[in-house]
């Protein structure tokens, strides 16, 4: 590990207060989501049943962040909502990134006919505002967390296609690609063994920032009732439910709102920090 601790990138990262803040927030959220069953004060409150003796309790006392209208502990539900959000983000990126990267590599490396066709297809997806596209796809299905993931995946891959396309275009004239072509390397070898590794830093940085943005879009959809359905704890639908009881039960709106901010900001700061550290290392 010493090579890592001494690397210039990590040293720059450690000095960057914002990046370290991001790393801390992300670590907290991920640990909470992983160990939800042990950390959450009332794990059973993640379901439909709460503590009917404590309905609408304000923050403090037994319930650190208060309870909702049927007596479920808000902190518990937020921790489980983080788990769902992270699962969604990981699934979406695990599917969207490979699709986008392959499209981008092909469009960037093969001839102009391919790049024209593939990039116009990408443009079609990119010309619909992301949230609108995802919502209209969910609209044709029944609203649920799974369908939300499908819809978000369908709108997310074009961003990776465009990023990889631009990177590939820059790489394909490089000497190492030409050398591989001359010795007769196969197309998959050139794309995945030669070009792709040089695109990975940018792709990985984008993925880090995107975890936050997928969570943001997913919560926006569930806020409109187009995502996870009750009683599943979900950040967006918790804000929507809480807004019905404003201003008296303000905590039902404010804490889920802050929870969204924490996770999106955490991944944002972490991604920015990684990008700058990568620049320093180069």
């Amino acid at each position: 590990m010493t090579w890592f601790a001494d690397s210039p990138g990590w040293r720059a990262f450690r000095r960057d207060t914002m990046a370290m803040t991001g790393l801390t927030l992300v670590a907290l959220v991920v640990l909470a989501a992983l160990f939800a069953d042990w950390i959450a004060p009332y794990p059973s409150h993640a379901g439909p049943i709460g503590d009917f003796g404590a309905m609408g309790a304000p923050p403090g006392g037994r319930f650190l962040l208060g309870t909702d209208t049927i007596g479920r502990d808000l902190l518990t539900r937020l921790i489980y909502a983080y788990r769902l959000s992270l699962e969604m983000a990981i699934v979406v990126l695990a599917i969207a990134t490979p699709i986008g990267v392959v499209v981008g590599l092909l469009a960037g490396y093969l001839g102009p006919a391919w790049s024209y066709g593939l990039m116009r297809l990408t443009d079609v997806f990119l010309s619909i505002p992301p949230l609108v596209l995802a919502m209209s796809i969910t609209g044709f299905l029944e609203p649920s967390a799974i369908h939300g993931m499908i819809a978000i995946t369908a709108m997310w891959w074009p961003w990776y296609a465009r990023l990889t396309y631009n990177l590939t275009r820059a790489e394909r004239q490089e000497g190492y690609v030409v050398a591989a072509e001359i010795v007769g390397a196969s197309l998959p070898h050139i794309l995945f063994r030669e070009i792709l590794p040089n695109c990975m830093p940018s792709i990985l940085t984008k993925m880090t920032v995107d975890v936050g943005f997928v969570i943001l879009i997913a919560s926006s959809m569930s806020f409109l009732g187009l995502g996870a359905q009750a009683p599943t704890p979900d950040l967006g639908s918790m804000v929507a439910d809480g807004a019905k009881y404003m201003p008296d039960a303000w905590w039902l709106t404010v804490f889920p709102a802050i929870a969204i901010l924490i996770v999106v900001m955490g991944f944002n700061l972490l991604g920015d920090g990684l990008r700058e550290a990568a620049d320093v290392a180069r």
Binding site: L216, S220, M246, T253, V254, V264
Partner: peptide, 13 residues
């Protein structure tokens, strides 16, 4: 980092 609906409900509140 804050979705528009969160700004909405917070400003409204």
């Amino acid at each position: 980092s804050t979705p528009a609906f969160v700004w909405g409900v917070i400003l409204q509140l």
